[in-house]
């Protein structure tokens, strides 16, 4: 399983390398007073990245897949956590810090363990309120406040 990931990732890294090489073609090749332009470094690195990915691909296809004893995994829990975190990141500015964080924490606690949801809700709300008021009022920091549609 490990070498399959290596082969896929080497293809992805090759594509990233090709992208940087191709796109550095559109960056100026010289700078004022210098023959060395801002395109040189990404161009060189892109080529290096492609070469290294090819080597990785070669290594991965030569090596036999070894079966490692992997710990039991829970794909659904990982995916739901990633999606949840992503949603949290996207809606935070719109919903405001306190609301989005309480909601995120509550859902995340619930995903981890479905019992004791009353306690989870308490912890979620108190964490977000505490962080918000300490940071915004105490330390004069900036966090998205309460949403406009609530007022």
């Amino acid at each position: 399983m490990s070498t399959r990931f290596d082969r896929y990732s080497s293809v992805v890294f090759t594509m990233i390398g090709v992208f940087f090489v191709a796109e550095s073609g559109s960056i100026s090749a010289s700078a004022y007073g210098s023959k060395v332009g801002p395109n040189l470094f990404p161009l060189g690195l892109g080529i290096l990245l492609i070469l290294l990915s090819l080597r990785l691909f070669w290594e991965a296809s030569r090596k036999k897949s070894e079966q490692k004893a992997t710990p039991a995994v829970d794909h659904r829990r990982l995916i739901s956590f990633v999606v949840l975190t992503f949603l949290y990141a996207v809606v935070m500015e719109w919903m405001g810090y306190v609301l989005s964080t309480s909601l995120f924490l509550f859902c995340a606690f619930w995903l981890m363990n479905k019992e004791n949801w009353w306690k989870s809700a308490m912890i979620a709300c108190s964490f977000s309120l505490l962080v918000y008021y300490i940071y915004v009022d105490g330390l004069k920091g900036t966090l998205p406040g309460w949403p406009a549609w609530l007022n």
Binding site: F81, T85, A89, Y97, T101, F104, L105, A108, M112, L143
Partner: peptide, 10 residues
Amino acid sequence: LPIIIAISVF
């Protein structure tokens, strides 16, 4: 774990 995520985001 969820609180670590929340702290990272914060």
